[in-house]
């Protein structure tokens, strides 16, 4: 799946997006896999209350299933307007 990062999440991880091969069944599982990779992922995902997630461009919960999802985006709370 395609994983996209925005704002300070992108800055901490150091890339705007990447292809991730995963068997994770929920967003939480995917986060656990990413955190285990490297310090920069740990730094980005340390506090998930400071994060939001969208699955295929719709806001979702962290316990949402990943089955059939092609695009996951992680970002801080939005500051539009």
């Amino acid at each position: 799946m395609n994983v996209i990062y925005f704002a300070w999440v992108r800055e901490r991880i150091g890339i705007p997006q990447e292809k991730v091969e995963t068997q994770a069944t929920t967003v939480n599982d995917l986060i656990a896999e990413l955190r285990a990779r490297e310090e920069r992922y740990e730094a980005a995902f340390a506090d998930i209350t400071a994060l939001r997630v969208a699955l295929d461009q719709e806001l979702a919960d962290f316990d949402a299933p990943l089955e059939g999802v092609r695009e996951v985006a992680f970002f801080p709370p939005m500051t539009g307007g």
């Binding site: 925005f6 704002a7 300070w8 969208a54 806001l59 985006a73 970002f75 801080p76 709370p77 939005m78 500051t79 539009g80 307007g81």
Partner: peptide, 19 residues
């Protein structure tokens, strides 16, 4: 729009840049 549209603001000042 403030809380649910996917925008993020970063302020650039003479002190640096902050989200």
């Amino acid at each position: 729009l403030k809380s649910r549209a996917p925008f993020w603001k970063k302020e650039v000042t003479d002190q640096g840049a902050d989200w």
